[in-house]
Design a protein around this nucleic acid. Structure first.
Lengths: 186, 205
DNA sequence: GCTTTAAAAAGTAAACT
DNA sequence: AGTTTACTTTGTAAAGC
């Protein structure tokens, strides 16, 4: 019996932090190679790191959002690169800015096809959203952990909204046991 | 005091005018879609419930009206696709879909996913196909859905493919383009669903 | 509410070859 | 006919309109 938990893979981590220093984004955009800054379109400056791959949104307030990292370690590594780049521009950056993980996106595989119609009825139409005309996934919101799962006919799923990697494991466990007790995993 | 009274009347009048506008829009769109009067009444009831539950706030009257009609068609078992509904509405498809999901959730409509078979009579008659073809299409839909092929697939594309397959099997062939046009899906979608359904039915191509 | 960023799932659409 | 690219859904922070 393969455990669906073993198939969990972190696909994206979103985190926020701040360097404790206001910035002149116009000059940062001039000096930082590869920076995208269009204040008319969006107030943040976009800076992409290559290793690890991620995208940082840098704001005038000095607050930064990092997205696209594949692990919490990568988030710290990516932001470390951003901090160093800013220091190279003679911008004072706090020694160890606090980094807060805001969202973790995970994928997993239940290992068997799912009858989404039956699952929609089984879990209760009031507890799910399943509109195959609009999107092929069934949307299932869990209270504990507080995450959202997207279930697909292939048995694969996406879990998002979690703040810790364990949230995805708990979510998969709950989903598997719930579907099992409803007899929808046979 | 007089001011407050006048304001109340003004608000009441505005609300009344908005309701009349919504109901006339539901009527206009219903006529354009050719849905029975009973469906318009169901749509009106849904719209009034949405109004009572204050679901219009932050949304357009047109959007809620259109969503109410879309929901009513589904509730009455004669669905119109979002594509079809958006053609007679001035709200775009994406907005109708998200407003429908919101209204449906808040009012607890609990509508089941659309059964592709519900599109068969309308699509088939638009294509001048016989009862035999319709029966065959329904058979294909039931049998392949039972094998789990329906999960995640759009009901219109699924019905279109089954009708296309049935028309071939009954020697009343319609081209993929003809079926795609009435169902408002692409030929690529019909080809993809058709291949799966034919294989699941064990019909050699 | 919107704007932007990232990534997965799987279906569909538009535009091509 | 089949391919490529792009969009649909979910969640999340940031600043500003």
């Amino acid at each position: 019996m393969s455990d669906p938990k073993d198939t969990i893979n972190i696909e994206n981590v979103v985190a926020s932090t701040g360097i404790g220093q206001e910035l002149d984004l116009q000059s940062v955009a001039m000096d930082l190679e590869g920076a995208d800054y269009d204040p008319e379109q969006f107030p943040g400056l976009v800076y992409r790191t290559q290793n690890p791959k991620s995208a940082a949104l840098i704001f005038r307030s000095g607050k930064i959002v990092c997205t696209g990292a594949k692990s919490t370690d990568d988030v710290h590594e990516s932001l470390g690169i951003v901090f160093d780049k800013l220091r190279e521009l003679q911008i004072p950056v706090d020694d160890d800015p606090e980094i807060t993980v805001q969202n973790i996106v995970t994928s997993a595989d239940l290992g068997r096809n799912l009858n989404l119609n039956a699952i929609a009825i089984g879990l209760g139409l009031e507890n799910i959203e399943y509109e195959p005309e609009q999107f092929p996934g069934l949307v299932y919101r869990l209270d504990e952990p507080k995450v959202v799962a997207l279930l697909f006919g292939s048995g694969k799923l996406v879990i998002t909204g979690g703040k810790q990697p364990v949230d995805a494991e708990h979510a998969v466990d709950k989903i598997v046991s719930r579907l099992s007790e409803l007899g929808l995993l046979d | 005091r007089l001011r407050k009274w006048q304001e109340r009347i003004r608000t009441k009048d505005a609300g009344e005018r908005n309701l009349q506008f919504a109901l006339s829009e539901i009527d206009r769109m219903s006529s354009a879609l050719g849905v029975p009067r009973s469906v318009r009444e169901v749509a009106s009831v849904i719209y009034r419930r949405a109004l009572k539950e204050d679901l219009i706030r932050g949304r357009s009257i047109e959007g809620v009206s259109t969503s109410a009609l879309y929901a009513a068609c589904r509730q009455e078992g004669i669905p119109r696709s979002l594509e079809e509904v958006s053609e007679v509405s001035r709200v775009e498809r994406k907005e109708i879909g998200r407003t429908y999901r919101y209204v449906s959730q808040e009012l607890g409509l609990e509508l089941e996913p659309v059964d592709p078979k519900q599109y068969v009579p309308r699509f088939a008659s638009a294509l001048d196909l016989s009862e035999e073809v319709q029966g065959k299409a329904n058979e294909i839909i039931d049998e392949t859905a039972e094998q789990g092929l329906l999960s995640g697939k759009s009901p219109t594309g699924y019905a279109a493919a089954a009708i296309y397959a049935a028309s071939l099997l009954c020697n009343e062939k319609k081209t993929q383009r003809e079926v795609a046009d009435v169902a408002q899906v692409t030929e690529v979608t019909i080809r993809n669903r058709y291949q799966e359904q034919i294989e699941a039915m064990g019909i050699p191509s």
